[in-house]
């Protein structure tokens, strides 16, 4: 049980936790938060993979670390868009829920 494996398990648990949050929490904001948890769990796995691939004096394999940085910025952009959407929906309807008003009368063009 070395350091990378420990953080690997931590990443796996974070992913499971985030997925639980994504499925269960009704408010969209909490879902966005849960999505960020899952994202950070996956990036932690990238970090673990990088750490396991450490060689030639580098702290870890630089390629997954580069992917993590790109991933974090993508996740942030997604969060920003999602939050903007939730706020706009809240301003428009006074409530930000995902359940459609009534499932049978969906929107029209």
């Amino acid at each position: 049980m070395n350091v990378p494996t420990l953080f690997g398990l931590c990443g796996a648990v974070l992913v499971g936790l985030g997925l639980y949050g994504l499925v269960v929490s009704p408010q969209p904001l909490r879902k966005i938060l849960a999505f960020n948890l899952v994202g950070s769990g996956v990036f932690l796995l990238f970090g673990v993979v990088a750490r396991r691939g450490a060689a030639l004096g580098m702290g870890g394999d630089p390629v997954p670390q580069a992917l993590v940085i790109t991933g974090i910025v993508v996740a942030f952009s997604a969060t920003a868009l999602a939050v903007a959407l939730v706020l706009r929906l809240h301003d428009m309807t006074g409530a930000a829920t995902l359940a459609p008003a009534d499932a049978d009368e969906p929107p029209v063009a």
């Binding site: 990036f43 970090g47 673990v48 750490r51 450490a54 670390q65 993590v68 974090i72 910025v73």
Partner: peptide, 11 residues
């Protein structure tokens, strides 16, 4: 702790 300081800064 995972020796990825760049990622730590970004995170």
């Amino acid at each position: 702790r995972l020796a990825a300081v760049d990622a730590a800064l970004t995170e």
